[in-house]
């Protein structure tokens, strides 16, 4: 039912993808060991994005699936970015226009028989 060719060559293709993902994984481990923050960010997160895209397009066949599936998944992802950039100014920053966060002392722990 899927469009790509049948037969065993296919299994090799997946093992090849797996090997690439493994190499990328090793890089994303060693990168942060160097300790330079910007390299850590690129290797850890950059490679994570690349790996995710590979798993999605290769293992999940999104490359061969109907286009609307990818658009749907990307829309859900876009909604999360939308949520992040609209909420960050309130939650992430410690002060804004006419407001500032202040440290609060410990409240009495919720004492109840739970």
């Amino acid at each position: 039912m899927s469009t790509e060719a049948h037969g065993h060559s296919h299994a090799k293709h997946y093992v090849k993808i797996w090997a690439i993902l493994l190499v990328l994984f090793l890089i994303s481990i060693t990168g942060p060991m160097i300790g330079i923050r910007v390299i850590t960010l690129i290797t850890a997160f950059g490679i994570a994005v690349v790996k995710a895209l590979m798993v999605a397009s290769e293992f999940m066949h999104l490359k061969f699936e109907k286009k609307f599936v990818t658009y749907m998944l990307l829309t859900m992802l876009f909604l999360m970015f939308l949520f992040f950039f609209a909420v960050a100014p309130d939650v992430m920053k410690t002060s804004g226009q006419n407001w500032v966060k202040i440290p609060m002392q410990e409240q009495p722990a919720a004492t109840k028989g739970h």
Partner: peptide, 13 residues
């Protein structure tokens, strides 16, 4: 809970 670093506004969003 702001005392523990959390933020009530996050829930509202």
């Amino acid at each position: 809970d702001p005392a523990k670093g959390g933020d009530p506004v996050l829930w509202q969003h």
